[in-house]
Design a protein around this nucleic acid. Structure first.
Lengths: 122, 122
DNA sequence: ATATAATGCAACCTTAGGGTTTCATAAATA
DNA sequence: TATTTATGAAACCCTAAGGTTGCATTATAT
């Protein structure tokens, strides 16, 4: 058996996983400009408040959202610094796909170059 | 009932979903430099070839990988252009978190500024 | 003191995700 | 031709995701 409470507090959820769900990306977009309380967020969706609450909780578990209580309301605030992990990961491949595109353009721009065909089985 | 075959061909899987799994990100990293056949990819993981094959299939469904057959081998090649969607999405929020950091620095750099406390209940 | 609002959380349901084993098939080889 | 090799796909399994309803709790408003 796993010590769930312990894991819950320490395990920082994968940010890639957190942004995989389109609803969570919408939530992020919704509170990116200004904090909203949980109900205000939930009102913008078709699904139940509880469903939205779970999404928000997941976002807090990976640090993309922090919740601050004022009276009986809890405001959800976006802390998007960890999106740099995503950007950095994807950005490292950019030169690969741009180089590929460039070499394709060079290839097409050379009129006398024979069009290669994929290897034929014989 | 859904026309599954039809959906399968048309529904381009969400690229955010595709990169959510760490194994799939590893696969992408593995074939980013040069194509590898399915078995060669699978050899680098603990899990079964079939499991890796499924991951590769998901990656092809969202256009991040293309498969080309040579003889009995099928080579998996990374086509990472669609990662721009991820970068663009995350990048739009960068100014928000950098502005927040800057204003925090400004706040801390002003010695006479009183430290605000969260609203107290009375 | 009560009623209502805003939330957290437990219990439950359904489906997709990730994994395995097994079998079928096409291509390369002994 | 017989046999490996490389792969696709079906049949299952188990768990996490995402959703719902209902209840408990705390703060605000009557």
């Amino acid at each position: 058996m796993q010590p769930k409470g312990f894991l819950f507090k320490t395990m920082r959820r994968d940010v890639f996983q957190a942004i995989a769900d389109p609803t969570r990306r919408e939530i992020i977009n919704m509170i990116a400009q200004q904090p909203l309380n949980v109900n205000a967020v939930a009102e913008n969706f078709e699904v139940s408040r509880t469903a939205i609450y779970k999404h928000i909780k997941m976002l807090t578990e990976c640090g993309l959202v922090v919740i601050t209580q004022f009276g009986r309301e809890r405001f959800c605030e976006a802390r998007l610094e960890r999106l740099t992990e995503v950007i950095d990961w994807a950005e490292q491949y950019r030169k690969i796909w741009t180089e590929r595109l460039e070499s394709l353009e060079n290839f097409l721009d050379t009129p006398e170059s024979p069009r290669k065909k994929p290897a034929r089985k014989k």
